[in-house]
Design a protein around this nucleic acid. Sequence first.
DNA 1: GTCTATAAATAGATAGAC
DNA 2: GTCTATCTATTTATAGAC
Lengths: 232, 232
Amino acid sequence: MLNNWLVKLTNQLVKSSRLKAGGRRRRGPANGHSRERIFAAATAEFAARGFAGASVDRIAATAHLNKAMIYYHFRSKAGLYREILRDMFGAVGARVSAIASSDLPPTDKVRQFVQAIALEAEARPHFPPIWFREVAEGGTHLDPATLGDMLGILRSVSTIVGEGVRAGRFKPINPLLVHAGIVAPVLLFFATTGIRRRIERAGLRGAAQIDRDEMVAHIQRVAVGLLEGRIA
Amino acid sequence: MLNNWLVKLTNQLVKSSRLKAGGRRRRGPANGHSRERIFAAATAEFAARGFAGASVDRIAATAHLNKAMIYYHFRSKAGLYREILRDMFGAVGARVSAIASSDLPPTDKVRQFVQAIALEAEARPHFPPIWFREVAEGGTHLDPATLGDMLGILRSVSTIVGEGVRAGRFKPINPLLVHAGIVAPVLLFFATTGIRRRIERAGLRGAAQIDRDEMVAHIQRVAVGLLEGRIA
DNA sequence: GTCTATAAATAGATAGAC
DNA sequence: GTCTATCTATTTATAGAC
């Protein structure tokens, strides 16, 4: 199967706080990990194939149980996906919010924000693909709660920028432009790791060898330079 | 139906050169526009729902003919999608290549490149969503030919940057970072027009009111500033 | 070139036993 | 909590008449 690496990677992480709090409380004994196994398998499946392309049968097979269990734990395919989205945006939002409300100087907050997006993308390999798919979808699947989480991220950027402006260190730039200039390229970097190797082999030297830290430093430099007005 | 605007918009454009040259030559008379109608309908459908989510039945209905015609003109759903991809990346690649091989100074070429991506996104509303979906997919659908078209775009950026460096006007920055810093935010802008309105209503002022030209000017400034080394 | 009819596989979802 | 079996709708794709 294609994208099998995603399955493996995802299976050994994602223990977000919301995982257990999200659904109904577990009562019985049994193995007890079935919900988590479904969640992990579904995350990989949705990332690799998208909501429409994902198959409940395949998720069940990957999770090593039957699909009736999926409908038992989550109410529908859409419900399952919704929980994954919330978990994802919730985690990113929390991390970013912590940075915004810290007492670092604005410039450091910007650098930390860039780093946070990169860290989150590495910790959750499904984050970049799912993010790109949701953008393409135009927010179709986004229930109000998830939209709220997304909004939180934007609000954090807005807070950081506003703070820098009031402190006289930043130029007043629309936070959405700042956000776009950071998040889109960073996630693109992680989402294209695979293709970049093909591109490299196809003849464009230097495509595959971009270093992760180099890339983060680059975006940090651009974002800070932009906000501090060192760009005409 | 959701995303109906896409159908309408797409129906009245896309007369790319490759449209007729791509498949077998038309022989018979008849209405004769069936192939184009399928192409337009499919483009909108794939943009709105992705490859897996797209339905051949729906494409046929939108194109006002039966689905046997789709298999007659294109050999399969995948074949149809492949042609759309080639048409899209081919058009963007051509426009960008023309800029790279013009005799403008490097700085102007960069500005023109940014403008070109924006123009292409406006002329083809399906370009941003499909681009985002392909990124998420990790290039799964990309046959060698289409990959070649994509590579052409990167090569153009590489050419422009290299030229500027040799002329002593640009700092040597990895072309992929330049490409990512331009294409990703610009396409994000166009892909999120709808959500931005929701975000605005949800309380983040200034989200929906970003002007198109303002945004292009912003990205141009950042890209040029970066390449000319006016960022520490 | 265009159609109808249909094959054949797979989809999401549920019933009901244990 | 976990399973098997199954219902129903929808999917891509083809056969064959005109």
